[in-house]
Design a protein around this nucleic acid. Structure first.
Lengths: 368, 368
DNA sequence: GTCCTCTATGAATCTAGGA
DNA sequence: TTCCTAGATTCATAGAGGA
C-alpha cells in the first residue's frame, strides 16, 4: 500500500490585512497565481533640487521623503524590474495590473512592464481638475498623471466590465482620459499635527473607477505600495478583498484606522449592469464615483417612492432596476421621467434633488 | 609669409527642403548644433494581429504599412536610440525636442530620451475630441496620444513662450493636456484614389501649439519623420524654417505640394504676447535721478511697513538698508520679494505701486 | 443661517544674467 | 565656475471667519 505523502500546503493568503516590510520580500513570500488585480503607486523618483515658493512667497511642501530617493536611473530600473517580477508571479493567469506614475518614472515603468511579459491594454490619463500650477511660468502646468493597465500576458482573459464603465460615463464608452479632482478636504488623511499623513494620497474616485472596471466582487486586489490605504478602503467599500504591503509604520497605522471606519456597500448595490441595459443620458454614476452619493444610499421620489443607489450608477427600485430616469418613470407609470429632478436625497434633514449634485460637477467641468 | 589655410566649411543647412532618405543617415550628414527644435512622429511599433472589423463588418483601415513593422522590442529600441542620438547631435545647446507616440512605443521612447541625456520638461497629452471608438468593447476607448517635450540637456535654456500659450488658453496657464480634434475633412490629404495619403496625419492645430510655444520666428525646425509635412506646413505659416526628412517618395511629393500652397502669416501676426522678462531693465535709482521720487520720500508696503528713499536708490527701513527687493524681503521674512510691486507711494491721496513709474520710463524708451 | 472674503495648499525634476 | 542680486511668477478648491 502506497503511503500518501501530504503535499506542503500553500501558505494561506493574508486577506484584508496590511503586511509590514519591503514589498519585494513580502511578495516573494506569498503564494503564486493567487491575486486577481494589482494596483501599484510606486515612488516616482522625482529629482527635486532646491526649494520652490509660490508667488506669494509661501513654501511648497515638496515630496522629499527618503523613499523617493534613488541614486540613478539604473537603480530605479532595477527596483522597478524586481518588484514587477515579484508582482507578476503573484498574479493569476488572467490577472492584471495598474501602475500610476508621472513623466519622471512612467516611461521606465512602461518599458519594464513590456520587457517582463505584461501586455499593455491601455494607458489611462488622470486629468486633474485642480492641479498645482507652475509657479515660475517655465513649463506647462503638470496637470495629469498616467496609469498603465496591463494583463499578465498577451493571452490573458482579463476582467473588463465594459457596461459598468459605460454606465458610469453617460452611456458612452469610457475613454482613456479620466477627469477627476485631486484628493483634498475631508478625504485627505491628516496626522496628529494636522499635516497631511501621506504626501501623495490618491483620490478614492480614481480607485473606484479602476476596481469597478477591472475586478468583480470577491476578487483579491493587492497593493504593494499601500501608503495610507486608498486601495484597501475602496476595495472594502466595493466588496473586494485586499492585501496591502507597506514599509512605513505611520502609513500602516493610518491606513488601518481608515479602513476600519469604512462601511461596505450593500451587496445588491454591487451588482453592475448587464450588457443589455438602456443608455442613461446623464452621468449619474459620477456622483457615486466621487462619493457624493454612497452605493446603498436610498433616494426618495416626490410621492414617497424609494430606490437604492448601486456602485455603477444604476438604481434598484421595487421589482425594477435601471437608470434614474427609468426607475422614476416606472414608479410614475409614465413613459419617461427626468430622474434628476425626480429623485432626492437627505442632507442635514432636508430633501435635496440629485440635480443639485450634478450642478456641482458641471460647475467644475465647465471651467475647462 | 605664412599661407593662410582655409578651414573646411561646414555644409550649408538645407533650409525649407524635404530631404530624401533614411532619417538616421541624413541626420548624420547635417552639421551639428544647427537646429533649434525637432518634432518627431516616429513609427509606433503597433503590434496588430490580423484585421479589425467594425460591428457592421466593415474593415478598419489599420496602420499596417511596412515602415511600422519591428520584429521585437530590442529592434525598436535600437532604432529609437540611434535616431535620438543623431537628432541630439543636430540640436543647438539650448535646443529641444518633441516626440509623439502611443502606449505601444512611448515608454520605449521616453526611456531612451532619458538615457540619451535629454531632460524631460513635460509630457503632454493630446486628448482627442473625436477618437475612433473601441469597436469590440474589450478596452477603454483609446482617446489620447502622448507627447514628450525635452531639452537637449538639463542645463539647456530652452525656449518657452509662456505668455503666448497663456494667451492661447484664455488667460490661464497652458496645461499638460490639450484637447484638439483629430485631422479630418479638408485638412486631411487624399491621394489620387481619394484615400488618405498618410495613415497618421497629425492635425495642424497640434503643431501650431507646439511651435508657438517652443520656437521663435526664424528658428530652424527639423522633422525626421516628415510624412506629409504637417510640421513644414505649420512652420511656414508661422515664419519658422523647416527641414524635413522622409523616405517614401509619395509622402515627399504630397508634402511638397501641400507646403507650396501654404501662405505665411503676416510678420505682424507672428508677434506673440511678450514676457516682462524681455523688457529693458530699469534700475530703481533712475526714478530718483529723474525726480519721479524725492530722496527722503517714504514708501509703504502692503501691510503698512515703511521705508525711506535715499539719493542713491537704496531704501532705509527698520534697522535695515538695501535695495527695494532686499528691504521688502526683510520685512516679509521671505527669501525674495519683487520690490516693484511691493512698495507704493502716495499721489493725490492714492497709493500707487512704484512699478507705475517704471512703466512710464519703459514707455519713453519704447518710443525711440 | 447666508453670503462673502480671505487664507491655505496640492507628486514640481520651476530663473537669468552679470561680476 | 561660482557667487550674487534683480525681479518674475499661480489655479482650483476647501475651509475659516467676518459681516
Amino acid at each position: 500500500m502506497a503511503v500518501r505523502t501530504k503535499l506542503p500546503e500553500a501558505p494561506a493568503l493574508p486577506l484584508n490585512q496590511i503586511l509590514a516590510g519591503d514589498c519585494i520580500d513580502v511578495m516573494r513570500s506569498l503564494p503564486e497565481a493567487s491575486v486577481d488585480l494589482i494596483f501599484a503607486d510606486p515612488p516616482y523618483n522625482l529629482q527635486l533640487k532646491g526649494e520652490l515658493h509660490r508667488p506669494d512667497n509661501s513654501r511648497v511642501d515638496a515630496v522629499d521623503d527618503h523613499w523617493d530617493q534613488f541614486s540613478s536611473f539604473a537603480a530605479y530600473d532595477k527596483f522597478t524590474r524586481d518588484w514587477l517580477a515579484a508582482a507578476r508571479r503573484l498574479l493569476k493567469p488572467n490577472g492584471a495590473i495598474w501602475v500610476i506614475g508621472s513623466y519622471h518614472n512612467i516611461f521606465r515603468v512602461g518599458s519594464a512592464l513590456q520587457d517582463a511579459g505584461y501586455w499593455i491594454l491601455n494607458d489611462v490619463v488622470w486629468r486633474k481638475s485642480n492641479p498645482m500650477p507652475n509657479f515660475r511660468g517655465k513649463r506647462l502646468t503638470n496637470a495629469h498623471e498616467t496609469m498603465i493597465w496591463a494583463s499578465k500576458s498577451e493571452a490573458a482573459k482579463y476582467t473588463f466590465n465594459y457596461d459598468a464603465l459605460k454606465a458610469l460615463n453617460e452611456g458612452v464608452q469610457m475613454r482613456s482620459d479620466w477627469v477627476l479632482p485631486i484628493c483634498t478636504g475631508h478625504e485627505r488623511l491628516k496626522d496628529a499635527n494636522g499635516d497631511k499623513a501621506h504626501p501623495t494620497q490618491k483620490p478614492e474616485s480614481l480607485l473606484h473607477r479602476v476596481l469597478v472596471g477591472s475586478t468583480n466582487p470577491g476578487d483579491v486586489v493587492l497593493d504593494p505600495f499601500f501608503g495610507t490605504g486608498t486601495t484597501g478602503a475602496v476595495a472594502k467599500m466595493l466588496g473586494r478583498q485586499f492585501i496591502g504591503i507597506e514599509r512605513e509604520d505611520s502609513y500602516r497605522e493610518a491606513a488601518a484606522q481608515r479602513i476600519a471606519r469604512v462601511r461596505p456597500y450593500d451587496a445588491s448595490a454591487l451588482e453592475t449592469s448587464g450588457s443589455k441595459r438602456a443608455e442613461p443620458r446623464v452621468p449619474f454614476g459620477q456622483l457615486v464615483e466621487r462619493g457624493m452619493l454612497r452605493p446603498g444610499e436610498v433616494l426618495v421620489g416626490p410621492r414617497g417612492s424609494t430606490a437604492k443607489v448601486r456602485a455603477d450608477g444604476t438604481l434598484v427600485g421595487d421589482r425594477m432596476t435601471g437608470s434614474i430616469h427609468q426607475v422614476g418613470a416606472h414608479y410614475e407609470g409614465a413613459p419617461s421621467c427626468n430622474g434628476w429632478t425626480y429623485w432626492h436625497f437627505k442632507r442635514e434633514g432636508k430633501m435635496v434633488p440629485i440635480d443639485f449634485l450634478r450642478q456641482q460637477i458641471r460647475a467644475e467641468l465647465g471651467e475647462h
